[in-house]
């Protein structure tokens, strides 16, 4: 077992202990938990093609739900699995409330226009090699393209991609969080990667 895996296990144990401590009334334990996982939860929402305000609102709901259900938390489940199960449920509820199809279509349209802009920018970048100002611009462009590609993924693939790539869950954990078959999660992961590489292939070159 490598050091990274040991570190993961020790972190999970620490999460469980602090969550149990918070359930017993230790407010400081929650502060540490929140500091470690707030970014992952926030990114999970902000990558769902949501505005910052909506992402923060959903993030707030997720943590509040965790606070209110602290007594029902059991140590046999990973804390992160428990946390992202709540986050996923809230994201699904939000997606059911509003029509996502319209946004999806709009994103595809935006992607087309963005590809045209990016191709022109990268042409300029390649022409003017190793300009420090342009490196920042390239990174910004790459970040935007990455966000748009993630947002353009189908919901299941996007969910798996975010949990795997951004939150760092394994396929098994994602299967537990999403209550899906492991093979189906793996398949979603594979298709998500293919689409992402296809959309971002220019940056690889």
């Amino acid at each position: 077992m490598d050091a990274k895996a040991q570190e993961n296990i020790s972190r999970q144990l620490l999460d469980q202990t602090q969550m149990l401590a918070y359930a017993q009334g230790d407010a400081a334990a929650f502060d540490q938990l929140y500091a470690r996982h707030k970014t992952a939860v926030y990114r999970f929402f902000i990558r769902q093609n949501l505005t910052t305000a909506v992402a923060e609102e959903l993030c707030h709901d997720t943590w509040l739900k965790l606070i209110n259900n602290r007594a029902s938390y059991q140590a046999n489940a990973l804390f992160t699995t428990y946390l992202f199960t709540i986050a996923r449920r809230i994201a699904i509820d939000h997606a059911q409330k509003k029509s996502v199809l319209f946004e999806k279509q709009q994103i595809e349209d935006d992607l087309d226009s963005l590809d045209n802009q990016e191709s022109s920018k990268t042409q300029q970048i390649t022409e003017n090699n190793h300009d420090p100002q342009l490196d920042a611009a390239v990174n910004q462009t790459l970040a935007d393209a990455l966000k748009q590609q993630i947002a353009a993924l189908p919901y299941e693939q996007r969910e798996v991609f975010l949990l795997k790539q951004e939150a760092g869950f394994s396929i098994d954990d994602i299967a537990r969080i999403t209550f899906q078959n492991k093979e189906k999660v793996k398949s979603s992961w594979r298709y998500a990667l293919q689409k992402m590489r296809k959309g971002l292939s220019f940056y690889g070159n």
Binding site: Y22, Y34, K38, H60, W63, D135, A136, N139, K147
Partner: peptide, 23 residues
């Protein structure tokens, strides 16, 4: 490059409200 992508964080206002609710 520490771009905007990795620098995305929830706002301090959100942090305060969540921590206040927890306490």
């Amino acid at each position: 490059h520490n771009g905007d992508y990795t620098a995305e964080q929830p706002s301090e206002q959100l942090d305060q409200s969540i921590l206040a609710a927890a306490h």
